[in-house]
Design a protein around this nucleic acid. Structure first.
Length: 972
RNA sequence: GCGGAUGUGGCGAAAUUGGCAGACGCACCAGACUUAGGAUCUGGCGCCUUACGGUGUGUGGGUUCAAGUCCCUCCAUCCGCACCA
C-alpha cells in the first residue's frame, strides 16, 4: 500500500460496513446456518490490549470464511456489563456504574470496529440493560417454579409436585432435595399443612431455593462468593481473604444436573483439558455410606467411603469439627479439649487452613463406635479438621493401612493399624500408602478377594445387613446465587409473611434503583436496602389487592447470571415477549464454534451448560448443550521492563527519617549490593514506552515518577544523578547505559506492559495486526507479545497489493488466460487455506498466503482469473485491503458476498511425482514417475534403474515397500 | 500428591495418516539497484567439517525397512485441582 493511506481506507471501509449493515444477518434463510461466538468481554476501564483481539480475529476469520462458503453466519458481540470493578469504581468516585459501563463499552466497540470485525452490531446488547436482564430475572423465576425429578431426569413444574403430594404424598417420587434426610409423608399429612408450611417445605425442592448454607464470605468485598470465584483461599477479584460463614442465601440446584453435566461432556468437541477440569469439578465418586453405631444412646454416625472393602481395617472414626453430632458424642471429661479444638478451627481463615494442610490436629471425643462387621475392637471417635464438613457425610471411617491421611493421623496420635491388603512391598510400619490393588486379608468374608470384587462384596453385605448402602456423591456444590452488591440484576422476589414470592410478570423488569451510595448499609444490609422505596406495592399490580408494601429482595444476582444465557439472546435480541422465540432458537441451534479463554472452564462454561439444560427441560430449546465446539485461545502476555530499586532508610542531621533511592542497572549483579535492615530491594516496573532495546530513558522515567527526581541510577560504568553521568574513575569506556530486565507477565495496567492495538493499527494497519496475531503461532498457545516479525506480515500485504499494480502504481489486472503454473499456485493455496481454516490452524494459512504471493510474483502473474480468487481467499484475514482491491476489480458489492473459490485438483497435481528410493532406510536416489504409475510398475522400474543398481551392487532386495505417499524402500 | 498440556535452529514456529525434519517469518551474512535509505530484489543460513561426510526434534531405552510423530523410563516448564475419604 502506498505509504500510510491505509488509515483513511480502513476507516472509510469500516464506515461503509456500518452504514450498509453489511454483516447484518437474518433469522430466515435457505442457506445452512453457522453460529460462531466469542466469549463477550467485561468492558474494563483500560480498553482493549493486543491480547484481547486474538480470539476475535480468529472467530472473525471463521465467520468470514463460512459466509464465503455459503453459510448464513451468526457472529454477534455484546458486553458482560454487570460486575465488581465498575461497582468499586463507583464506591471510590460516586460515579454511577451505568455511566462508567457506558463509556467503557463505547470505547470497546470503537476499538473492535477499528479492527474490522464482521460482527452483526444490530444484535449487540449489554447484560445490564433492563430489556435483557428482564429475561435473566424471568429465567430465575422459572428456576424457582421448577423441581428436579431424578426418576425422569428432568426439571418439572412445581405444580406437578404439589399435585403428586396432594394425591400420593411422597410415594413413588424421587425428587432432588436440599436435605437428604427429607421425611416421607402421606397425602393426608400434606393436605393438613397450612399454606405457609407447604411453601416452606416446597423450598427444599425448588431449583432456585433459599437456604441456610455455609458460604464463602469475603469481608474485603462485602459479599459472598461462589466456589469458582475463590482461588487459593482468597477472592479471585481483588485477592481478599475469604472465610466460611453460615447465611440464608439463594442457591441454584446445579447438583441435580451433575450427572447430565458429566455425561454431556463426552459428545462435545472441546479440549481434553477443559473437559477434565469440569469432570474434576463435578467430582463424581462411587462408594458406600456406612452407619456405625456408637456407645452413646441413640447416636449413629454415617460415614462415606470409596473403599468399603477396607472396612475390617477401620481403627478409628473422624468427624468434621462442624459436624452436628460433635456435641452429642463429646463426653464430660473431653468437653474442654474438644470445645477448644472446634473453636480454634472455626477461628482460622480459609487461607490459614489451606496453608496448614500438612499439620495434623484433632481431639478425641471420648466416645466409641462399633464396627458393624467386626466387633472385636472398640473404635475411638475423633474430631479432626482433615475431614471436611461439606463433603460426603462429614465423617470418615479411618483405615490407616490403606489411606495416607488416615495413616499420618494414626501415627501422630498413636492409633492401632490393621493391614487388610496383601501384595505390596511397602512396609506399613514405616510409611503410609494407598493400595488400590491386592488381595484382602484379615477381613472375614472378604478374605481372598481382589479389591474391585471386595468393594462389590462389601456393598452387598452392607446393604443386606441393613447398615448402609452403595452411594454416589459429588464434589459439586449448589451454586450460590445471592450477592450483597449493587451492580447486578435485582432478584425479582418480594417477601410476605417471611416467605419469598415471585414478582408478577407484569412487574418485570425489576429495575435497579438509584441509591445514594454503593456500599452496604450501616446495619450490614446489601446496598439495595438503601433504596427507600424498595418495596413491592401490591395495589399497583394486583387489582383488588391489599395496599400493603412488601419488602423486596435486596441481594442481587452474581456476575455469571447474565452470561449463562446471553448466547441465546443474540438469536432474537429484540424480543419483548420472550427471552427468544422458538423459531429463532430452532434455526440457530447450538453455537457451532465458541472461542474464549480457559479461565472460564469451571465457572461460566458449567453454568451456561446448566442453564441450557434447564431451558431444554422447560421445552424452550431443542438442544441441551450450548457449545458444540470450544476452542480456548492462548493468552498474549506482556513483556514488562523491570528495574531494581534499592531503598535505604536513613536518619538525617535533623534526626528525621528520609528515603534514599538508588536504582541498579540490570547488568549489575543486584545480589552483590549491600543488604541490611535499613536497605530493601524492590522491583519497579517502568512503562514499556520508556524503554528502547533494554535501555531506560531516564529523563522520561523521572518525569513520570517525580518522587525519584533525586534518585541515583547506578550503571556498569558509573552513576547518573539529576541527568548527569559521573563515570567511575579508572574505567575505560565507562558505560552510562541504564538497562532494564524483561519479564513475561500477564498484560496489566499495573505492570505498565500493556500494548494498545490502536498504536499498532496506527503504525501498520488493522490488517497487518490481524495477520500478524494469527501468524504468531498456534491459536491455543500462550505467547509473549513481541513486534519482532510484524514487518514480515506488513511486507507480505504490500507484496500482495503490488501484484495488482504496475511500476507506476497504476492498477493493472490482465484479462488474459492464466497459465497452468499460475493456476497450480492458486489451487494449491485454495486447498491448503480452506483446510487450515477448517482445522483452525490459522497460523499455517498465513504461511501459505506468503508462499503463494511469492510464487505469483516470481511468475509475474497479473491475471484476473488468479488474483480475484486469491483476493477472496485472503479476505477473512485482511478484510480492508481485499475490500479495496475488490472495488478496484470492478465489484460494487462487498467481498462478503463473493463465493469462496473451488479447489480444482487438476491444477494441483503435477503429472509426475518424485519418489525417494531408500535402501535399508537410507535415501540413496530420487526417481520420477508419471502420476498414474502402479505400485508394480514402480517396483520394476526402480530395480531396473542404473543408479539404484549401483547401490544394490548386484544383490536383490529381500523386500520392497512402496508407500502410497511416494516413497520406495528396498530392504536388503 | 492428582489431573491436563508442552519440550524441534539465535528467535516465533512448520511437518493432516509413522515416509526427504526445520516450510513460512524474524534476526544475521553476502550481493544487485540506488538520489546511500527503516525502500526493493537475488542468494546463503541446525550443529561439527575447507570439503567428502557425519550428526541432529528434552533424557535413556523399545517397536519398525522407516519415529519429532507409536510404546516404556526419567527430566524440565506451564496450567488446573488439592486433606474430596
Amino acid at each position: 500500500m502506498s505509504d500510510h493511506s491505509f488509515r483513511e481506507i480502513e476507516k472509510k471501509i469500516q464506515q461503509r460496513w456500518l452504514k450498509e449493515q453489511t454483516f447484518r444477518v437474518d433469522n430466515h434463510s435457505d442457506k445452512p446456518k453457522y453460529y460462531v461466538l466469542d466469549m463477550f468481554p467485561y468492558p474494563s476501564g483500560a480498553g482493549l490490549h493486543v491480547g484481547h483481539p486474538l480470539g476475535y480475529i480468529a472467530s472473525d476469520i471463521v465467520a468470514r470464511f463460512k459466509r464465503l462458503k455459503g453459510f448464513n453466519v451468526l457472529h454477534p458481540m455484546g458486553f458482560d456489563a454487570f460486575g465488581l470493578p465498575a461497582e468499586q469504581y463507583a464506591i471510590q468516585t460516586g460515579q454511577h456504574p451505568a455511566v462508567t459501563t457506558e463509556d467503557n463499552t463505547a470505547r470497546y466497540r470503537e476499538q473492535m470496529q477499528a479492527l474490522g470485525f464482521s460482527f452483526d452490531w444490530s444484535r449487540e446488547f449489554k447484560t445490564s440493560q433492563p430489556d435483557y436482564y428482564r429475561w435473566t430475572q424471568w429465567i430465575f423465576q422459572r428456576f424457582f417454579e421448577y423441581w428436579y425429578d431424578k426418576a425422569l431426569d428432568k426439571a418439572r413444574p412445581i405444580s406437578e409436585l404439589v399435585s403428586a403430594f396432594e394425591q400420593n404424598g411422597t410415594a413413588g417420587l424421587n425428587p432432588a432435595v436440599f436435605d437428604e434426610n427429607v421425611i416421607e409423608f402421606k397425602a393426608d399429612f400434606w393436605n393438613s399443612l397450612s399454606e405457609s408450611e407447604k411453601q416452606r417445605r416446597l423450598m427444599y425442592y425448588r431449583l432456585a431455593f433459599l437456604a441456610h448454607v455455609t458460604v464463602n464470605w469475603c469481608p474485603g468485598l462485602g459479599t459472598v462468593l461462589a466456589n469458582d470465584e475463590v482461588k487459593d483461599g482468597v477472592s479471585e477479584r481483588g485477592g481478599f481473604p475469604v472465610e466460611r460463614k453460615q447465611m440464608n442465601q439463594w442457591c441454584l440446584r446445579i447438583t441435580a444436573y451433575a450427572d447430565r453435566l458429566l455425561e454431556g461432556l463426552d459428545a462435545l468437541d472441546w479440549s481434553d483439558a477443559v473437559k477434565e477440569m469440569q469432570r474434576n469439578w463435578i467430582g463424581k465418586s462411587r462408594g458406600a455410606s456406612i452407619i456405625f453405631l456408637t456407645e452413646v444412646n441413640n447416636v449413629a454416625i454415617e460415614v462415606f467411603t470409596t473403599r468399603p472393602d477396607t472396612i475390617y481395617g477401620v481403627t478409628f472414626i473422624c468427624i468434621a469439627p462442624e459436624h452436628r453430632l460433635v456435641q452429642y458424642l463429646t463426653t464430660e471429661d473431653h468437653l474442654e479439649e474438644v470445645t477448644s479444638y472446634v473453636e480454634s478451627v472455626k477461628n482460622r481463615s480459609e487461607r490459614d487452613r489451606m496453608s496448614e494442610v500438612k499439620r495434623i490436629s484433632g481431639a478425641f471425643t471420648g466416645s466409641w463406635a462399633i464396627n458393624p462387621l467386626d466387633d472385636k475392637h472398640r473404635i475411638p471417635i475423633w474430631v479432626a479438621d482433615y475431614v471436611l464438613a461439606g463433603y460426603g457425610t462429614g465423617a470418615v471411617m479411618a483405615v490407616p493401612s490403606s489411606d495416607i491421611r488416615d495413616y499420618a493421623f494414626a501415627k501422630h496420635f498413636g492409633m492401632r493399624i490393621t493391614t487388610v491388603l496383601e501384595g505390596s512391598n511397602t512396609d506399613i510400619s514405616v510409611e503410609g500408602f494407598d493400595p488400590k490393588a491386592g488381595t484382602m486379608i484379615n477381613s472375614g468374608d472378604l478374605n481372598g478377594l481382589t479389591v474391585p470384587k471386595a468393594i462389590d462384596a462389601a456393598i452387598t453385605i452392607i446393604e443386606t445387613e441393613g447398615f448402609g448402602k452403595g452411594r454416589i456423591i459429588y464434589r459439586l456444590r449448589d451454586a450460590l446465587f445471592s450477592r450483597q452488591r449493587y451492580w447486578g440484576e435485582p432478584i425479582p422476589i418480594y417477601y410476605k409473611d417471611n416467605l419469598p414470592h415471585l414478582l408478577p410478570d407484569s412487574e418485570l423488569p425489576l429495575i435497579l434503583p438509584e441509591i445514594d451510595a454503593y456500599k452496604p448499609t450501616e446495619t450490614g444490609e446489601p446496598p439495595l436496602a438503601r433504596a427507600l422505596d424498595w418495596f413491592y406495592n401490591t395495589e399497583t399490580a394486583v387489582a383488588g389487592g391489599t395496599t400493603d408494601n412488601f419488602p423486596l429482595e435486596t441481594n442481587t444476582m452474581p456476575g455469571w447470571a447474565g452470561s449463562s444465557w446471553y448466547f441465546l439472546r443474540y438469536m432474537d435480541p429484540a424480543n419483548a415477549d420472550a427471552p427468544f422465540s422458538a423459531e429463532a432458537a430452532k434455526y440457530w441451534n447450538q453455537v457451532d464454534l465458541y472461542l474464549g479463554g480457559s479461565e472460564h472452564a469451571t465457572g461460566h462454561l458449567l453454568y451456561a451448560r446448566f442453564w441450557t439444560m434447564f431451558l431444554y427441560d422447560m421445552g424452550l430449546l431443542n438442544f441441551s448443550e450450548p457449545f458444540k465446539r470450544l476452542v480456548n485461545q492462548g493468552m498474549i502476555q506482556g513483556v514488562s521492563e523491570k528495574t531494581t530499586l534499592r531503598l535505604r532508610k536513613m536518619v538525617n542531621i535533623d534526626n528525621l527519617e528520609v528515603n534514599k533511592f538508588q536504582f541498579l542497572s540490570a547488568d549489575l549483579p543486584a545480589s552483590e549490593f549491600e543488604h541490611s535492615d535499613n536497605v530493601t530491594l524492590i522491583d519497579v516496573s517502568a512503562d514499556i514506552t520508556m524503554v528502547k532495546d533494554g535501555e531506560l530513558d531516564l529523563e522520561a522515567f523521572v518525569a513520570w515518577r517525580p518522587e525519584y527526581a533525586d534518585a541515583v541510577f547506578i550503571t556498569a560504568g558509573g552513576f547518573i544523578k539529576n541527568g548527569v553521568f559521573s563515570p567511575d574513575p579508572g574505567k575505560e569506556n565507562p558505560s552510562s547505559k541504564f538497562l532494564t530486565r524483561q519479564e513475561v507477565e500477564k498484560m496489566s495496567k499495573s505492570k505498565y506492559n500493556v500494548v494498545n492495538p490502536d498504536d499498532v493499527i496506527a503504525d501498520y494497519s488493522a490488517d497487518t495486526l490481524r495477520v500478524y496475531e494469527m501468524f504468531l503461532g498456534p491459536l491455543e498457545q500462550s505467547k509473549p507479545w513481541s513486534t519482532h516479525g510484524i514487518e514480515g506480515t506488513w511486507k507480505f500485504l504490500r507484496k500482495y497489493r503490488r501484484l495488482f499494480f504496475d511500476d507506476k502504481d497504476n492498477f493493472k489486472v490482465s484479462e488474459a488466460e492464466p497459465t497452468a503454473d499460475e493456476l497450480r499456485v492458486l489451487h494449491k493455496a485454495i486447498r491448503k487455506v480452506e483446510d487450515d481454516i477448517e482445522r483452525l490452524s490459522l497460523n499455517t494459512a498465513v504461511s501459505t498466503f506468503m508462499i503463494c504471493v511469492n510464487e505469483l510474483q516470481s511468475l509475474r502473474c497479473n491475471k484476473r482469473a488468479v488474483l480475484e480468487p486469491l483476493t477472496i481467499l485472503l479476505s477473512p484475514y485482511a478484510p480492508h485491503l481485499t475490500e479495496e482491491i475488490w472495488a478496484l476489480l470492478g465489484y460494487s458489492d462487498s467481498i462478503a458476498f463473493a463465493q469462496w473459490p473451488v479447489w480444482n485438483e487438476e491444477f494441483v497435481k503435477d503429472n509426475t511425482f518424485e519418489c525417494p528410493v531408500s535402501i535399508n532406510g537410507k535415501v540413496r536416489v530420487k526417481l520420477t514417475f508419471p502420476l498414474n504409475t502402479t505400485a508394480a510398475q514402480i517396483e520394476t522400474e526402480t530395480l531396473a534403474n542404473d543408479a539404484v543398481q549401483k547401490f544394490l551392487e548386484g544383490r536383490t532386495p529381500k523386500k520392497i515397500v512402496v508407500v502410497p505417499n511416494r516413497i520406495i524402500n528396498l530392504v536388503m
